[in-house]
């Protein structure tokens, strides 16, 4: 059954590593919903969060194929574990003197921020899970969204144990199916 999976890959911060991952998705026809990359807690290593749409078999293939990339240190499927995940969006909304107040009220309800005000627009910053951002976008669409930028999901396992602590299928040496 198809569903969204959150994979977290810790990778060497080397030129071409994103290219290697992207090339693999394209070549094997994997569908990637979002990908977010940034530095991790270890210098020289980046953490990549991927949202993959597919059934368990396909996602397991994605995970294993990613794991084969030499510059990928480990890949974890966080879907079935406790995790926290967030996404950030910047939304530039049409705003006139008559609608600005209403927009600000909505923004407040969502605990979002207005980070720029223009002559005929405001730019809203919001963080949260996908649903929250989707709902805010839907509400603001009525005013007219001029531009939208979303980061895609980033995620960490809950509690003290991160993927480094070696949960199921977390590291290359645990590549065995049980």
């Amino acid at each position: 059954m198809a569903s969204k999976h959150t994979l977290v890959a810790v990778v060497e911060n080397r030129p071409g590593v994103l290219n290697r991952m992207a090339s693999l998705f394209r070549r094997r026809g994997f569908n990637i919903e979002s990908i977010a990359v940034g530095h991790s807690e270890i210098p020289g290593q980046s953490r990549v969060t991927l949202v993959v749409d597919g059934n368990t078999t396909i996602v397991e293939q994605v995970r294993k194929q990613l794991d084969k990339v030499i510059d990928v240190i480990k890949v974890t499927d966080l879907t079935d574990s406790e995790m926290v995940d967030r996404e950030l969006a910047l939304i530039k909304v049409k705003a006139s003197s008559t609608t600005r107040n209403e927009i600000m009220q909505i923004v407040n309800i969502f605990r979002a921020n207005i980070i720029d005000v223009g002559f005929d627009s405001v730019t809203v910053e919001v963080t949260g899970d996908e649903d929250k951002i989707d709902s805010l976008c839907n509400l603001l669409r009525g005013f007219g969204i001029k531009e939208l930028a979303r980061t895609g999901r980033i995620a960490l396992a809950r509690g003290g144990a991160g993927p480094a602590a070696g949960e199921k299928g977390t590291s290359k040496s645990a590549g065995q199916s049980h």
Binding site: E60, Q61, K64, Q65, D67, G175, Q176, S177
Partner: peptide, 17 residues
Amino acid sequence: IDPAEIGKNVRVDVPIV
């Protein structure tokens, strides 16, 4: 020896990597 070959093309009852 390649974990990614397990279950790629056929269903497997007992995989050993």
